[in-house]
């Protein structure tokens, strides 16, 4: 009987101490870990879109509530003005969701650039949406409104040859971004006004 109690006590105490230790380490590293994840997973796309900004967009981020989801916005400061935000949407691709970072100039509602963050498209075909700079570059400067569709569907976006579904996913993600931007525009403007210069 005594051995039984000892077993229970030892295991309980060990588990509690270990749980407590891990909880404290997790809460201490949480912020740093999410920063690192953003920096290495989404960072390349964000940096490409907000190229030349004078701040670190990953540090200067804020979140807004959009219905039930929380979205992160990354601020780019150009010429001393925090006038550009980048945020992430996604579209249905050939092999799953295609994550897309979209940069918008808030001052004149134009598209600053896009960049694919995460995808599971066919390497060498759909994956060119991420690796081919010409595909992303065509979005630069387009007016950020209405629907984005690929040329085969009667739209304005040049599809990647052989990867129409992926291109549609990207175009759809941009269309989504337009809708999100429309919903959150006033809140976004408020946030940027109070942005520390």
């Amino acid at each position: 009987m005594r051995e039984m109690i000892q077993m229970v006590v030892v295991l309980t105490v060990l588990s509690c101490v270990s749980g407590g230790l891990l909880a404290s380490i997790k809460s201490n590293t949480e912020e740093r870990i999410s920063y690192q994840q953003l920096k290495f997973v989404k960072g390349p796309a964000i940096r490409a879109i907000l190229e030349g900004s004078s701040n670190d967009p990953i540090t200067d981020r804020f979140t807004l509530q959009d219905g039930e989801v929380e979205r992160s916005f990354f601020v780019g400061v150009f010429d001393g003005q925090p006038n550009t935000v980048a945020f992430e949407t996604s579209g249905k691709g050939f092999g799953g969701d295609v994550g897309l970072m979209v940069g918008v100039n808030v001052a004149d509602n134009s598209l600053v650039g896009i960049g694919v963050t995460t995808h599971s498209e066919t390497p060498g075909v759909g994956s060119r949406a991420q690796s081919d700079p010409a595909f992303a570059a065509q979005f630069k400067g387009m007016p950020f409104e209405g629907e984005f569709t690929v040329k085969p569907d009667g739209g304005q976006v040049d599809a990647l040859s052989g990867a129409t579904i992926t291109s549609r996913a990207v175009a759809g993600a941009v269309t989504d971004a337009v809708k999100i931007y429309g919903r959150l525009k006033s809140q976004l403007a408020d946030q940027l006004k109070s942005f520390p210069k």
Binding site: L21, L22, I25, K39
Partner: peptide, 20 residues
Amino acid sequence: IIIATFVTVVELVMQAFAYP
């Protein structure tokens, strides 16, 4: 339990300081 605790510590610390 002891080993798993330290492994998780390593995992968290590595994520925070050596993400690549």
